[in-house]
């Protein structure tokens, strides 16, 4: 029981890492996805390059580069900042791909229609494409939140005192490995259930009336 305060401290760091990376990754992802779809050859190639490099290398290696290798080129970051940067850059690449899929699933005629009433390309993207693409991405985004929450545990390797790191420290001191790690596992589990429930509510609330209902009825009849 005396270990609870430090676990709570760790939980706090875990939540900070998760949410800041998720939001920073979202903005990065929007930029990358738009760049990839609408950016023209050069911008699109840069975005694809970034996405492929990040997705093609382990998060742990990315964190090591940021934390251990960056100082040699004159950039020294606190462990927590390095963790935030690494997780955000990583999540951005994945979120970009979810969003790109959503953007490309929106009938191109809507973009054309927006242009015919005099909207610029940017206005059409902002008012017509993005509001729909973001809605479609919510389920994937829920996945990303859950992944991120669990992936934050990896940053204990660069000495960030998040939930898993605190647990490992306490367990090593008390030798209560089973109890401590069971508690930690349960905390992650409860958080993922709570988050996915909240996002599901959010998704229902933002659902576009009528859209997709016919498909669902058709499926029910078929079954």
């Amino acid at each position: 029981m005396e270990s609870l305060p430090s676990l709570l401290d760790g939980l706090y760091i875990t939540l900070i890492l998760t949410f800041i990376s998720l939001i920073a990754g979202l903005f990065l992802g929007i930029g990358l996805a738009l760049g990839r779809v609408y950016g023209g050859k050069i911008v699109s190639a840069i975005c694809i390059g970034y996405i492929e490099i990040i997705r093609g290398t382990p998060l742990l290696v990315q964190l090591f580069i940021i934390y251990f290798a960056f100082p040699s080129i004159g950039i020294t970051l606190e462990a927590i900042d390095a963790a935030l940067l690494g997780l955000s850059l990583n999540s951005g690449a994945y979120q970009a791909e979810y969003l790109r899929g959503s953007i490309q699933s929106i009938p191109s005629g809507q973009m054309v229609a927006a242009r015919t009433i005099g909207m610029t390309k940017l206005q059409s993207i902002k008012n017509i494409v993005l509001p729909q693409a973001l809605r479609i991405s919510i389920p994937a985004w829920s996945n990303e939140l859950i992944y991120l929450l669990k992936y934050t545990s990896i940053v204990y390797i660069i000495q960030v005192k998040e939930l898993t790191a605190e647990g490992k420290f306490i367990a090593a001191e008390t030798f209560k490995f089973l109890e401590i790690f069971a508690i930690i596992a349960i905390i992650y589990l409860v958080l993922t259930i709570v988050f996915s429930t909240i996002i599901e509510k959010f998704e229902k609330k933002l659902r576009i009336p009528g859209l997709g209902e016919k498909a669902k009825i058709g499926l029910r009849n078929a079954l």
Binding site: Q110, A113, T116, I117, I128, I208, L211
Partner: peptide
């Protein structure tokens, strides 16, 4: 100029959201 030229599509192309 496009504001002065309305366009109506075969497939409607309404904004779904």
């Amino acid at each position: 100029i496009r504001q002065k030229i309305g366009f109506v599509f075969q497939e409607f192309n309404l904004f779904n959201h």
